[in-house]
Design a binder for these strands. Sequence first.
DNA 1: AACGCCGCCTGATCGC
DNA 2: TGCGATCAGGCGGCGT
Length: 280
Amino acid sequence: MPEMPEVEILVRHLRPLLRGKTIRRVSVRRERATRPTPPREFEKALAGSKFKGLTRRGKYLLFELLGARRRSEPAVLTMLGHLGMTGRMFVALKKEKLLPHAAVVFNLGDRNFIYEDQRYLGRMTLDLSPLNELGPEPSDFSPETFAAALKQSRQAIKIKLLDQSLIAGVGNIYASEALFRARISPKMAANRLTSAQAKNLLRAIRDVLNDAVELGNTIARKTVSGELFYFSNDGESDYERFRVYDRAGQPCLNKCGSKIQRIIQGARSTYFCPHCQRTR
DNA sequence: AACGCCGCCTGATCGC
DNA sequence: TGCGATCAGGCGGCGT
């Protein structure tokens, strides 16, 4: 499940591999992959363009390209990528066999840049409108503004943290992790957090995400084989990575004597320590 | 208009 | 052994 740290790691990995490369040909192999941009339009718009920059916003990847020379001056294009639940993006030698779920293939000459997605919940598109719905990056959010924003909602804080229009980049795993570090109950109504609690929570969100990027970078370096790079969730690499996520029934790492509990909020799993996170 | 809920997707796992 | 049900969960869209 890629959240902000996984996307950040991927962006840092891909940036130097793509910079300056010209797209010879684009092949959309899954019609859904470029929604709402029509696949043929997507292929046509990007063929011949050159990768310039790559940045991240929330869980989105922003590919900046210089359009193919048409008559007038070259157009700047932005392509938006999202990994959904199971998306992967990597550069591979053209001669390598395509994975069964390759959704979009960008040919760069002797290499392919591939977006692959087992469940097709992610996408690669020219529609930039989702960016308008995003809240601030955790690093840009002033603690006062964050605290004030929480006052607007009666939803449980855990559910609220998943709202990308409030704060960008927090997903199901790091929402639980941040609340544990801030010692705040996931069930607490967002508008009932004190200003101090909100500030602690923002601090915890930043710490959890930054730590994950650092740890992930270590793992990623080990995972790279040749030109192939994967972000994978199903791995040995998750060892001791999370303090509460997926640890139901196991002892709280604060050694309080309680066991981590799993509850369902908004149809999603939440993990927390009922002793250390007693706020309501 | 904040909020709840469903659909999209495939593969792993579980119960009968 | 086989097969349907359930779960994984980010996000867009829709209904209230």
